[in-house]
Simulated assay, not measured.
Amino acid sequence: MLIEHAGKRPRIDPSAWVAPDATVCGDVSIGPGSRVLHGARLIGEAGGTIRVGRECIVMENAVIRASRKHPCTIGDHCLIGPNAHVTGAEIEDEVFVATGAAVFHGAALGRGSEIRVHATVHLRTRLDPGAVVPIGWVAVGDPARILSPDRHDEIWEIQRPLDFPDWVYGLDRSTPDLMQHVTRRLSQSLAGHAADLVIDG
């Protein structure tokens, strides 16, 4: 399903294919020979752009999102695995993001890097070309440190100053009732979807 959002329509190269039950919404471009499979969601929020390069594969139920502050670019010959989640990241050519992996706002993945099953690349993290994040592991920082998930204290020591609430929502972590402010702000920005226009069923 192709959806116009905030006056922006998806642009799909004639040689690309989007499954009929996938959703491509807003300022999204999909390059030649790329494939967006069943149940995948590519959502460019108002002011947010998503660019998918040549001969990319976005597998079933993957989610790719962008916002005004955090555009998302996926280079050529990339594979985004089933149930993977990519938000506001810059992914260079020939990157593999495996099943259930998560890549967050402001992350930069170098050419040929691999994010294996259920691995995480935290916000503002930079991976060198060819880097590998093992199954279930966590990459965090710039330059990235790649740590096993049982090393939470070390991960948090690097992650905390990256400041997810401020970087993503513009809110200080110490704000009283932080989640009330986050959800209120998100609710206001997502309200614009009420005016979306389905342009292809």
Rank of each mutant, 00 (worst) to 15 (best):
V95S: 07
V133E: 05
D142E: 07
V133I: 12
T125S: 12
P14E: 00
D21F: 00
G141V: 04
A101M: 13
V121Y: 07
E55G: 08
I115F: 11
G130T: 10
E60V: 06
T49K: 05
L178Q: 02
P14R: 00
A131C: 09
I74Q: 05
T87S: 13
A40C: 08
G130N: 12
W156R: 13
T49V: 09
G141Y: 01
G26H: 04
I50M: 01
G31S: 00
G112S: 05
I3M: 09
A144Q: 01
D196W: 14
I12A: 00
I155K: 08
V86P: 07
Q159L: 15
A66K: 07
I12T: 03
C25M: 15
A195T: 13
D150Q: 11
G106A: 02
R68W: 14
C72Q: 08
V132T: 13
V63Y: 13
V138G: 10
P129S: 10
R111S: 10
E92A: 14
D172S: 08
W167P: 07
V182F: 10
R145M: 06
G26E: 03
V132C: 09
T73G: 04
L79P: 01
A62N: 08
G100R: 06
R126P: 05
K8P: 00
A191E: 12
P82S: 12
N83K: 11
Q188M: 07
L42G: 15
E45W: 14
G31E: 02
A144D: 02
K69A: 14
R11W: 01
L162V: 06
D200E: 14
H77K: 03
L37G: 04
L190T: 08
S15A: 02
T183C: 07
G33K: 00
L123R: 13
G130Y: 09
H70L: 04
I115P: 06
L79A: 11
G48F: 03
G106L: 01
G7W: 03
G26C: 03
V103A: 00
R185N: 14
